[in-house]
Design a protein around this nucleic acid. Structure first.
Ligand SMILES: [Mn+2]
Ligand SMILES: [Mn+2]
Ligand SMILES: [Mn+2]
Ligand SMILES: [Mn+2]
Lengths: 220, 220
DNA sequence: GTTTAAATTTAAGCATTCCTAACTTAAGAA
DNA sequence: TTCTTAAGTTAGGAATGCTTAAATTTAAAC
């Protein structure tokens, strides 16, 4: 059984691997977890010895099957807890990530299956992220597009939000964004590639950096 | 903030202190937590330096006010989780202790107050143990008697069960014992101080050791 | 093709938590 | 009161997980 730290490293590497055409570097992991590169380098070597990673010194890393399985196991617990906290306890979507970040390491398989059953085997968490099933299979995913790539003039439905910043989540709530909300792409400023969207009767200019945390599908 | 280990030591010492006329020894703590006496001795010295315990070498220990507050804080989280798991998720009273033993260290004050509110500020956990409120105050306790001290011929109502052994909890369930169940004390064998109780239509001989885990109040 | 800078690893050190083995103290028995 | 032993502490060592500083390697610039 991996420790809490190891689970967090493995999960971080899994998430970094999801970016296409880029192998995962020590620096990437160190930045994501906010630890030193030295600590990361050591941990990566340990995880590699223990069979969670393929790793060649100075060359970057990739998860083994075992590593992927472990990552999906942690992610499953994280997302089930988030959904549970929102749907049952009534926490907001901006409050749950920090709690889940801890609970994901403190939940037995037995308990997580009970939570899963209670929630009727949900497929997505409160931010629209897919929940792996107990075998590690992800549900089929809609073909989402990040906001900076949405076309001006079209309407889109919000299906996923990156949840790592509470501040950002609160901002999204404030401007009326929630999952499945339909918005209109009013325009895009070539000056800074920001996007102006209309939510209900109000319009907002969303910077490219912020916009990259919002994922939509075209509204039919 | 104490670490998980420290919280477990402090909680163990609190619970050992509840036995009257006995000061808490290194051995007591080591046995309870199933670690070596050496590890306990070291930890006790650290906790003493940090103000959680009064401690004189070779002389035993007692919690400071700070230590008691910390212990009650952990116990609150433990018992609220146990009740939540039973009342909301439908786990049995024998399944929850092990889960709570971990969750008690992974729950923010924010979350525990939400759970508490959801449960309508409960006063007792599924084993009849009192839940400290957020200020550390325990509810008023009934004057319970352990089974070996119950008088033959009288009827008693079960109000508290020691929950540390799953095996024992399952046995209690099997013979029909649950909280608030009324039982009749049929007899006591002087040979081994075991007690014969009647639960519904069945009678059972309960050894003194097992009986000391059951607490009753006289049924009026 | 060198040179240089960035990325990465190694080294040295610290804190925590545990272990076994050796030693010390306290307390009861003789 | 001395002896014996149980209880408790210290010593030495290991694993984890983190830090900063010093090497080392790679890759990009010239
Ligand atoms: Mn999350
Ligand atoms: Mn985490
Ligand atoms: Mn318990
Ligand atoms: Mn615990």
């Amino acid at each position: 059984m991996p420790t809490i730290s190891k689970e967090d490293y493995i999960k971080a590497i899994y998430q970094l691997e999801s970016y296409p055409d880029k192998s995962v570097s020590t620096t990437d992991v160190a930045n994501k977890l906010e630890v030193s590169k030295a600590a990361t380098s050591e941990m990566v070597q340990r995880l590699s010895e223990q069979g969670f990673l393929n790793y060649e010194k100075y060359r970057g890393m990739s998860l083994t099957e075992d590593g992927k399985r472990t990552a999906l196991h942690v992610i499953r617990r994280h997302r089930i807890w988030e959904l549970f906290l929102v749907d049952v306890l009534g926490l907001t979507w901006s409050e749950v990530h920090a709690e889940a970040e801890i609970l994901e390491h403190s939940t037995s398989d037995f308990l997580i299956e009970r939570l899963d059953k209670y929630l009727r085997h949900p497929k997505f968490d409160p931010h629209g992220e897919p929940i792996p099933d107990k075998y590690g299979n992800l549900p089929e995913l809609p073909d989402w597009v990040s906001l900076p790539k949405c076309e001006v003039g079209k309407s889109y439905r919000l299906v996923k939000v990156t949840d790592s910043s509470k501040e950002l989540m609160d901002y999204f709530t404030e401007i009326g964004l929630s999952l499945n909300k339909v918005v209109m792409i009013v325009s895009r400023l070539s000056y800074d590639n920001s996007t102006i969207i209309q939510v209900g009767n109000d319009s907002f200019n969303i910077s490219e950096k912020i916009a990259s945390n919002l994922f939509f599908i075209e509204d039919v």
